[in-house]
Design a protein around this nucleic acid. Structure first.
Lengths: 250, 250
DNA sequence: TACTACATCTCGCAT
DNA sequence: ATGCGAGGTGTAGTA
């Protein structure tokens, strides 16, 4: 499995060929990086994983951490040129007005290949599932709650679930699939105020539906006269629970 | 540069060895994926780039797009076992209560290597740079503004720049490095209200400092009696501008 | 550990 | 193109 270290001189050819053939490329390299665009950043020399995709995506990963230390999004133009004793990879994205320069001092190993994949991820457990569930189980938001609309762009805007209470008033429900914090309360308040203004009534109640809420958020919520309802996002942890016992051995 | 296709049977050994030696591993593979944790997700068979890092990070990249289609964060446990005609990589993260299963049908190419990198990125142009600049250029927020604290956890909380106006009142400045939207106004309002409550005065003015602001956000801001000040994040586009003319050729 | 806010956030969706 | 909000957001800083 050990590949011989690549001759640095061969890399430009390899890169250009990969680009031409629309291959993906992955290489362990020794490099330094400069980014300029939405911010300015420099990164000194070190060993990294360099990834180039056929769509113009560029990723630079350090040996640890799940996020790339540098990246350029799809649509970037990639060039390589010789500079003294090393190579310079220039990546430019006109739409993003950003540029990345990779000074390449060593290429330890490199693979390049055409990849074929038309699959899309099928995902469940998002916020939309929660608002669906609430619409179908309205009593979970209190007796008398009658939902009118769910996640639609009505005249009141982006409201997760909107409805009547049993008493002539309106109800705005904001769903969070994770612990609700201060920003969720801000958001709910803004929606409630917008509905109040549009409907011309102060009889608008806010409900925050989430599996949990932080103490400060709850305090703020209650100070506005709003209500917290504990609701878990549907379908979560199916396989996790199935695997639970097997984890002890790790 | 063409590596022979790897025999699938050799992969478990390669993976275990890489884990043991704390190597990073990158491979072009044909696989399907199931994720379970904060949500539930499945991804059918396709060609992808699989990355394993020594810290337990796992990334699965499709041929396009800059974000991984699946990932597990550092600290994950990784095992591999034979299942009929293919292999199953199990990734489990106890802290995150999440699990990933990769059904591996083919390994086209694979590289594994120890990576050494102690560098940290030096980045400028973030929000902190803006609040620094405002503190050092207080008149940009209006005559009479005298900053007291910047981005410190005082009794008033997380406020970017906090100070006096020239007239016995308080000023709260919220900075955004990009176009300010409704959420930024929410945030500023929350801070202003908190300061009002703590200081026991209604004489608290809110200023939103950003390179731009959306129309709705500006309307909402003004309705609260707050002020917008146009401020660009410092140091931006240095190299971008330098490269501008060279981009025409891409 | 929990809470908070930033991020070169990214992405999708609607206007 | 811009505005807006979700995200398996991730990450850093702090109590």
């Amino acid at each position: 499995m050990a590949h011989p270290h690549m001759d640095l001189r061969d890399f430009p050819e390899t890169l250009l060929r990969a680009r031409e053939k629309r291959y993906a490329l992955a290489a362990f390299v020794h490099c330094s990086v400069v980014y300029s665009g939405r911010a300015e950043a420099t990164l000194g020399r070190g060993d990294r994983l360099l990834i180039l995709k056929s769509d113009g995506t560029v990723l630079i990963h350090q040996p640890e951490s799940s996020v790339p230390i540098n990246y350029m999004k799809a649509g970037s133009a990639i060039t390589v040129e010789e500079v003294e004793d090393h190579f310079l990879i220039r990546v430019a994205n006109v739409a993003e007005k950003s540029a990345l320069e990779i000074e390449l001092f060593r290429v330890y190993e490199c693979i390049a290949r055409e990849l074929s994949d038309g699959q899309k991820q099928d995902l469940s457990g998002h916020e939309r599932d929660m608002s669906d569930w609430i619409r179908d189980n309205p009593t979970s938001m209190g007796d008398g709650f009658r939902p009118i609309a769910r996640e639609e762009h009505t005249d009141v805007g982006f409201i997760d679930v909107f409805g009547h209470d049993g008493d002539g008033g309106f109800v705005v429900v904001e769903c969070k699939r994770v612990t609700a914090s201060l920003t969720a309360v801000d958001q709910l308040r803004r929606y409630v105020e917008r509905v109040s203004a549009i409907k011309g009534t102060k009889n608008v109640h806010g409900i925050l539906a989430a599996p949990a809420i932080t103490p400060n958020a709850l305090e703020m919520l209650l100070s506005y006269g709003f209500t917290y309802r504990k609701v878990d996002a549907p379908k979560r942890h199916l396989r996790w629970n199935a695997q639970q016992k097997g984890l002890a051995e790790y």
